[in-house]
């Protein structure tokens, strides 16, 4: 599913964000990537999303070669992943329904299918009753649920979450992570980059620990160190 071989990332300013990273995340796994600020978490996530390109090494995600992928193939690749951000990135002038609908429109889903799928997706995240609410009428947790519904709208094989609970209180965070757990059980591979020890310890899933651009620990049922 995700394979990294000897991956090094050096930014233009000379910062070596990742150093010879080797890892593999099989299909259907739930993995946390943790580490202090500047450890390379975000860079690793960006490489997997193909927002950045590795300086050296090989990266394969969902069968796509991230180093050699053609420009026109990138949208196809991105349709096989879902992304959740810390700041939700909901469109403020669109309702919860419209925000989820937007993801389906962009990928050219038929109007008839959209009207069936959006209520189902909102139901999965427990917000069917708030479909007409605008983001500013929703709590942080609810906004992240809408963002999750949008991320899984196109039925991705892989869901990448960059600090998904960074803006949420501990209780709400657990709710979100439980929801991610349910999505994972449906077969979606999930990667969560975080430094929220609460959710890591709660889930008891694989934990990959980064420090100074290197993997210093990788445990199948890990705890936040």
């Amino acid at each position: 599913m995700i394979i990294l071989k000897n991956v090094t990332k050096v930014y233009k300013n000379g910062t070596e964000a990742l150093k010879k990273i080797n890892m593999a995340i099989p299909k259907g796994e739930f993995a946390f990537i943790i580490g202090p600020s500047g450890s390379g978490k975000s860079t690793l996530v960006k490489l997997i999303m193909r927002e950045e390109i590795a300086t050296y090494g090989e990266i394969y995600v969902n069968g796509f070669d991230m180093q050699g992928i053609d420009r026109y193939q990138i949208p196809t690749f991105r349709r096989s992943i879902g992304v959740v951000f810390q700041d939700f990135k909901l469109l403020p002038n669109k309702t919860a329904y419209d925000n989820v609908e937007f993801a389906l429109q962009i990928t050219g889903t038929h109007k008839r299918d959209i009207s069936k799928m959006v209520p189902q997706l909102l139901d999965v995240v427990g917000l069917k009753h708030k479909d007409k609410a605008y983001p500013d009428e929703l709590s942080g947790g609810e906004q992240q649920r809408v963002a999750l519904a949008r991320a899984i709208a196109n039925n991705p094989d892989l869901l990448i979450c960059d600090e998904p609970t960074g803006n949420l209180d501990p209780k709400t965070s657990i709710g979100i992570i439980e929801l991610l757990g349910r999505i994972n059980k449906m077969g979606t591979t999930i990667i969560v980059a975080t430094h929220d020890s609460n959710i890591v310890n709660f889930m008891q899933k694989r934990v990959i620990v980064l420090k100074d651009g290197r993997i210093i620990n990788d445990k199948m049922r890990g705890q936040y160190i």
């Binding site: 999303m49 420009r71 026109y72 949208p75 196809t76 690749f77 991105r78 349709r79 096989s80 992943i81 879902g82 992304v83 951000f85 990135k89 469109l91 937007f102 993801a103 962009i106 990928t107 949008r150 709208a153 196109n154």
Partner: peptide
């Protein structure tokens, strides 16, 4: 910018 980022990660084509 947010809209562009979302579109990008949802898999919108460059032209879209």
């Amino acid at each position: 910018n947010d809209e562009v980022v979302i579109m990008k990660f949802i898999g919108a084509t460059e032209s879209r």
